[in-house]
Design a protein around this nucleic acid. Structure first.
Length: 429
RNA sequence: GGAGAGAUGGCAGAGCGGUUGAAUGCACCGGUCUUGAAAACCGGCAAGGGUUAGUAGCCCUUCCUGGGUUCGAAUCCCAGUCUCUCCGCCA
């Protein structure tokens, strides 16, 4: 959520920045709401002040044994006006809040202008896409031939966009997650965290999934309105909701390995083959809560943490800065890590690392006490995938495939695989 | 699932219709003292919002959440959420 006061004072400038990302701020609607709010709020508070003063007077008069009837008459003369004003103000403020909650974050000045992913800016590339002296297969052909991936079974059990894994393939998937967790906790200083996979609406408002993106979420059929998490970002970041952190505790770095559930309502027809786009996938998520002045450095650092996973796995990738048009709703700046997929002959997103500035923190009142002012101030939040486990499995399969259809296991994963060096044949019992 | 108790400031914990945004302690921030530190003593210290050029003043709101009673609610009533204790059940 943007700062309402900033919006009032710099409406045109803010609208201009939002226009960069293709968002048309309805300045007329805002001005109208704001004008009505101001007069109504001032009027309501005047009336409240009058009532409070009279009531206090009644208390004093009573204690002094004076006649309170004149005061009672006067307070009665306020009539229903106060009640009406309070009700109107409440509903107007709710309307204003909904309006503010639906405005995306301002893109940082360093974010390139653009319409869609075509306009993203490549920052750097790491590793060489492997060359094969045979026609490389994609992960579906490889995984099914190995007996490790079974999309038909998943479709039977549930429907499309799910995966069943067997044997060494399932273990490799687990090994990847374990490897990532160990790397980030041991070498990058994150606190391993276990979180609920269902969250309430307040949490989803906090990180920005609601109110605008309800259709991307799975909602439980329950009057409590719980949702399955679309990413561990939601529970992890909301740990800081309504908290005031000590300056000495910052930065706070947490991580969780969780399944993620996405309805992907708007993605029909895209990536229908294989496990690139699933309703359920595992991800290791990195989240940092930092002092405002540190958030851009934290974004670089966190992106580096995610890159480290790919480097250790020796998977070629590139880093792109998302252009304004491709930027997520809550983000001010995002780096995507794109891994090379031989089966598709192109780079595909495997991690997304973002600086949200105080956008999420304001929604959830996540604060820290600034020792310089002694006052609570909004934190900045930064997060990123480190990495999406399913897509990493895809990348390993496709990049490490051999002509005979077997797949070499990356060195760093072998300790997690009981020393196994190669996936071959059926892992099926 | 059944019975009971509770939810108050960063933390602990009083208050149980009126000048209480809230005693007290801890923590924190200033000061005195000290070569320095500690201790002791003195002072300060909730959050959100409005108005405003203002981090000044004034005002509003907030004692789990949402309703209600009242001139006035942390305090009374109703509903809900969460926590704790005991019983039952269960991985």
């Amino acid at each position: 959520m943007l700062d309402a006061r900033l919006l009032r004072g710099n409406l045109d400038e803010m609208a201009g920045k939002l226009a960069r990302r293709g968002y048309q701020l309805d300045t007329a609607a805002f001005n109208d709401l704001e004008t009505r709010r101001k007069s109504l709020q001032v009027r309501t508070q005047e009336l409240q002040n009058r009532r409070n003063t009279l009531s206090r007077g009644i208390g004093k008069a009573k204690a002094a044994g004076e006649d309170i009837q004149p005061l009672l008459d006067e307070v009665a003369s306020l009539g229903d006006e106060l009640k009406t004003a309070e009700e109107q103000l409440k509903s107007l403020q709710a309307e204003l809040r909904e309006f503010l909650l639906s405005i995306p974050n301002l893109p940082d000045d360093s974010v390139p202008d653009g319409k869609d992913e075509e306009d993203n800016r490549e920052e750097r590339a790491w590793g060489e896409p492997p060359s094969f002296d045979f026609e490389p297969k994609d992960h579906v052909d490889l995984g099914e031939a190995l007996g490790g991936l079974d999309f038909a079974a998943a479709a039977k059990l549930t429907g499309s966009r799910f995966t069943v894994m067997h044997g060494a393939m399932a273990r490799l998937h687990r090994a990847l997650a374990q490897f990532m967790l160990d790397l980030h906790t041991a070498e990058h200083g994150y606190d391993e965290t276990y979180v609920p996979y269902m969250v309430n609406q307040a949490s989803l408002y906090g990180t920005g999934q609601l109110p605008k993106f309800a259709e991307d979420l799975f909602r439980l059929d329950d009057e409590r309105n719980w949702h399955l998490i679309p990413t561990a970002e939601v529970p992890l970041t909301n740990l800081f909701r309504d908290e005031i952190l000590d300056a000495g505790d910052l930065p706070v770095k947490v991580l969780a390995h969780t399944p993620c559930f996405r309805s992907e309502a708007g993605a029909y027809g895209k990536d229908t083959r294989g496990m690139i786009r699933q309703h359920q996938f595992d991800k290791v998520e990195l989240v940092q809560a930092v002092r405002p002045e540190d958030s851009f450095a934290a974004l670089e650092e966190l992106t580096g943490h995610a890159e480290k996973v790919l480097q250790k796995l020796d998977l070629p990738y590139r880093v792109v800065t998302l252009c304004t048009g491709d930027l997520g709703f809550s983000s001010a700046k995002t780096y995507d890590l794109e891994v090379w997929l031989p089966g598709q002959g192109r780079y595909r997103e495997i991690s997304s690392c973002s600086n949200f500035l105080d956008f999420q923190a304001r929604r959830m009142q996540a604060r820290w006490r600034n020792p310089d002012t002694g006052k609570p101030e909004l934190l900045h939040t930064v997060n990123g995938s480190g990495l999406a486990v399913g897509r990493t499995l895809v990348a390993v399969l496709e990049n490490y495939q051999q002509e005979d259809g077997s797949v070499l296991i990356p060195q760093v994963l072998r300790p997690y695989m009981g020393g196994m060096e190669r996936l071959q044949g059926s892992g099926k019992p």
